[in-house]
Amino acid sequence: MTAVASLLDELRAAREYTNGLLDHVPDGDWYRMPAEGVTHIAWQVGHLAWAELGLCLVRVCGMSPEEISLLPKHYGELFGKGSVPRTEDDRHPEPAELRAAADRVHAAALEAVSQLDDSVLDEPAGPPHLMFTSKREALRWCAHHELTHTGQIILLRRLLGHTARR
């Protein structure tokens, strides 16, 4: 198995796990923010879509943000790094649109990364980042980042009264 194929498997496995959890969250709970928390499921999913776009398509595959039309521009304000999850915002997408957006980005990322040769994986992955320097590390971080946020989704589900199981 090539290194690219192995990294693609990590990205797929992380998303499969996330989607299995989301399949059992009613739409009405996506923007509920428990008193114990500071976030909601919709922000987690929007953030994952925005981050995967930036990590895989921009940093690793070298696309410019302007040429990527997979997400509305305001998603950066709603879900990007440093954004603040809010329960009320007239720009908030419905859960089905958020999932579709995350699916579009994920499919595009898998397709773009699958075109890479293993020889480029040790090249720098854009500007400095605390968690990685190379394209290989950026792809691995993308999968780990997703699982970090999936853990938050699990906690939110529990706080909203859902069982821990998928």
Rank of each mutant, 00 (worst) to 15 (best):
E16K: 08
L53C: 12
V60K: 12
E36D: 13
E10P: 06
L71D: 03
I41P: 08
G76N: 05
F79Y: 15
S83T: 06
E67Y: 04
K81L: 14
A51M: 15
P26M: 01
D29T: 03
R12G: 03
K81T: 14
A49C: 13
I68G: 07
G37H: 15
V58W: 14
S83R: 04
S64R: 12
G82H: 13
A5K: 10
H47E: 00
L8C: 12
A49S: 10
A51V: 12
A35P: 14
V60R: 11
K73R: 13
V84K: 15
C56M: 08
K73I: 06
R59K: 15
F79N: 00
D29C: 01
G54P: 03
E77W: 05
T18A: 12
Y31R: 14
W43P: 03
R15G: 01
W30T: 02
S6H: 14
H47C: 03
M33A: 11
M33Y: 10
L48H: 01
I68K: 07
G54M: 07
P72E: 13
D29Q: 11
T39E: 03
K81C: 02
D27H: 08
G54F: 07
P65Y: 11
W43F: 07
G82R: 06
S69R: 13
E10I: 05
T18M: 05
V60P: 03
A13K: 05
E52D: 15
S83D: 04
G76E: 08
E10Q: 15
L11A: 06
P85G: 05
G80N: 05
M63D: 09
W30Q: 11
H24C: 06
T18G: 07
T18E: 06
R12C: 03
G62N: 07
L22Y: 01
S6W: 10
G28F: 04
M63Y: 12
E77I: 00
M63I: 04
L11I: 07
L22R: 01
H47Q: 02
C61I: 04
N19Q: 10
M63H: 11
C56V: 08
A13H: 07
R12Q: 09
H24Q: 13
V60D: 08
L7C: 04
L8Y: 02
L70P: 11
H47W: 02
L78E: 00
G37Y: 12
